[in-house]
């Protein structure tokens, strides 16, 4: 009896090896949020106060979504899990350093940007407490950049693209990519605002953008592509749930 696998199964094995190799060779390194203690107390409080209303809004928004249609619960869990997965993968970038994606664009397109504030802060808390990555004192700033500013931009761009009748896949790609990139532009702004006494704000902004945003460009493109894949899969296999969210026209 031949032990040779059928052609289709061989392809699956080859693809799984390719994925394993890609993740296996990614060098271990800290990825990026603003680290514990790297913002002065006044700014920690400032960003915390700004982020708080969005988190509260997000909490009520999620409650409303769940109350209106319990069928969308698995999708909400998947959007949260997507942020979990994506923000744990540190990918090498063209600048010679590593960073990770945010994964918040998908949730913003499906459930609106406010809901993502809650999903995002859960991930940030996990990373800050268990991984020494990001920080509890800087959670307001990190929440604002990753779970509020980025998702709002993604959502806004997607709605704009919809009005302009862009191709849906292109629209998803642009919204998620730019949203991810915007997160790191906001992080650059937050860092430049806090730390510019030696060089002035403008120069600090440019140098921070070079570190944070430039590293992020290829990663943002990957996030846009993965978001398309997930949404196409959901549209095919969870059509009713996507319709009830209003993502597919009924």
């Amino acid at each position: 009896m031949s032990t040779r696998l059928p052609k289709k199964q061989m392809w699956i094995v080859a693809a799984s090896f390719a994925v394993a190799i890609c993740f296996g060779i990614a060098p271990a390194a800290n990825a990026m949020h603003i680290m514990e203690g790297y913002l002065p107390i006044s700014l920690c409080v400032f960003w915390g106060v700004i982020a708080l209303p969005f988190v509260i809004w997000g909490f009520f928004s999620i409650r409303k979504i769940v109350d209106n249609n319990r069928r969308t619960m698995p999708l909400l869990a998947m959007a949260g899990a997507f942020i979990f997965v994506i923000s744990s993968l540190k990918i090498p970038s063209v600048t010679g350093s590593c960073s990770h994606m945010t994964g918040t664009g998908l949730g913003a397109l499906l459930f609106g940007p406010a809901a993502v504030a809650v999903l995002g802060i859960i991930v940030l808390l996990f990373q800050a407490i268990l991984l020494a990555h990001g920080g509890l004192t800087t959670i307001g700033a990190n929440c604002f950049s990753m779970a509020i500013a980025g998702p709002f931009v993604s959502y806004g761009l997607y709605q704009l693209g919809k009005k302009l009748h862009w191709n849906k896949k292109v629209n998803i790609f642009i919204a998620c990519t730019i949203g991810d990139l915007f997160t790191y532009c906001v992080t650059s702004f937050q860092m430049a605002w806090a730390h510019h006494s030696n060089v002035g704000f403008a120069k600090a902004m440019v140098t921070n953008m070079a570190v944070y945003a430039a590293t992020q460009v290829p990663l943002a493109i990957i996030e846009g592509l993965i978001s398309i894949v997930i949404i196409l899969a959901l549209e095919n296999y969870a059509t009713d749930e996507m319709k009830s969210l209003g993502f597919i026209e009924a």
Binding site: P27, A29, N30, A31, M32, H33, I34, M35, Y38, K90, P92, S93, T95, G96, S97, C98, S99, M191, A192, A194, H195, H196, S197, N198, V199, K203, A204, T207, N208, V211, Y212, T215
Partner: peptide
Amino acid sequence: ATFGGSDDAGGELVKKNDSS
């Protein structure tokens, strides 16, 4: 290229931009 984390590079930048 060493592929360190971009927050390590961010930490270095803080020292440079705001040494105090």
